[in-house]
């Protein structure tokens, strides 16, 4: 089936099979490899994207059901070499190791800070509990979220 999506601000068209997820279409058809495929069942958050502003796992969105929607992926955040403040904070805080979970965390953190610019530790932990990281033990990720909050994430 032919899909029309608004991805990162541009109209995109792609072919999708009936059973395919938005994640598959973003990665394999549109070349947006930033959203990662780690569990395929919404248990790890590595494929987090925004759909009409809501944080979702792209692996749990049927591609066909995303027709006509506004999709924002991790690729939407940096402006060329200029990192988004959340991305900068993850780099500086040492929150990146293998980095496979990182794009999902970046998108989820940006969504969190949009809704709650100064989250407490507890609020961060709850908001990011759907994103699994196997490398860092989360300590530096928590720090990165605080850092980006302190810098005003929209800067």
């Amino acid at each position: 089936m032919r899909l029309r999506l608004q991805v990162n601000g541009s109209q995109r068209e792609a072919e999708a099979r009936e059973h395919e997820s938005l994640l598959t279409v973003l990665r394999e058809r549109l070349g947006l490899w930033g959203s990662k495929n780690a569990c395929e069942q919404g248990e790890c958050g590595s494929c987090s994207v925004l759909i009409d502003g809501d944080l979702v796992c792209a692996c749990l969105v049927l591609a066909g059901a995303a027709q006509g929607r506004d999709v924002r992926t991790v690729e939407d955040l940096a402006a060329g070499e200029h990192l988004h403040p959340v991305q900068r904070a993850f780099v500086d805080a040492g929150a990146v190791q293998c980095g496979f979970c990182t794009p999902g965390f970046i998108v989820a953190t940006a969504a969190l800070l949009r809704d709650n610019p100064e989250p407490s530790d507890a609020e961060i932990r709850e908001a990011l509990s759907g994103n699994i990281c196997r490398c860092t033990g989360y300590g530096k990720i928590l720090e990165a979220v605080h850092r980006s909050a302190a810098q005003g994430y929209t800067s």
């Binding site: 780099v91 990146v96 980095g99």
Partner: peptide, 16 residues
């Protein structure tokens, strides 16, 4: 020091 591979990783550009 920050990791040189961190910027591509946070941008989703690092190729796994």
């Amino acid at each position: 020091a920050p990791r040189a591979d961190a910027p591509p990783k946070v941008k989703g550009e690092f190729v796994y």
